[in-house]
Amino acid sequence: MKRIMTTLLLFVCLQSVNAYADNSSRDITAVLEGLEKMMSGTKTISTDFIQEKSLAIFNQKIILKGKVFIQKPSLLSWRVMSPMRYSMVMRGNTISQWDEDTNQVQQVRLAENPGFQVAIKQMQNWFYGTFKSMVDDYKITLITEHPITLEFVPWENSVSRNFITRVTVFFQNDERYIREVRIEEKNGDSTSLVFVNAQLNQLIPLSAWEVKADVR
């Protein structure tokens, strides 16, 4: 099922839709360039996160707590401590996953998993500040300037359109990294992700890139 999306898209040939008639003004371009410049100095990030998921499948909101490690250009580690232990490490185009239930490591190619691809690509862009690369997939609007808040709405012919209605990204006052992300999904579910205790440009322990290591 993981490659279904990618392969199906080949067969869904409709009339051309101009994806580039972007209404992005000079202001938004300047803002994105400014953010990219500001965040380009950040080489590593380690931060705690609190993820609040409102999913129709559950009676209540699910709150996940964990840690994120990022090292440019292509390392990302996503480690959930509660309510269940789960870790995911991305190296280049491959992701390795582990969870405490199965206690097994599973490897998946990013290109074969559009769900992961969209999620990971988004995370990379948020933390790396490479927002300009998202203009192909999203219409980006500046909601507030101080502190900066950006809204991302997928273009009509973007893959993200299948799952996401809107993403709102809130920045810290110093604009060096993001404070919170809110995702509204197409099926009515929503997720908010708050980052706390962020440490920039600190040496990240090698164990962070080992998927089955102690996730605490």
Partner: peptide, 15 residues
């Protein structure tokens, strides 16, 4: 189902 719901790529899998 529970595990998948909590994974980063769950948006795609939920339906």
């Amino acid at each position: 189902v529970y595990r998948q719901s909590l994974s980063p790529g769950s948006s795609f899998l939920m339906p």
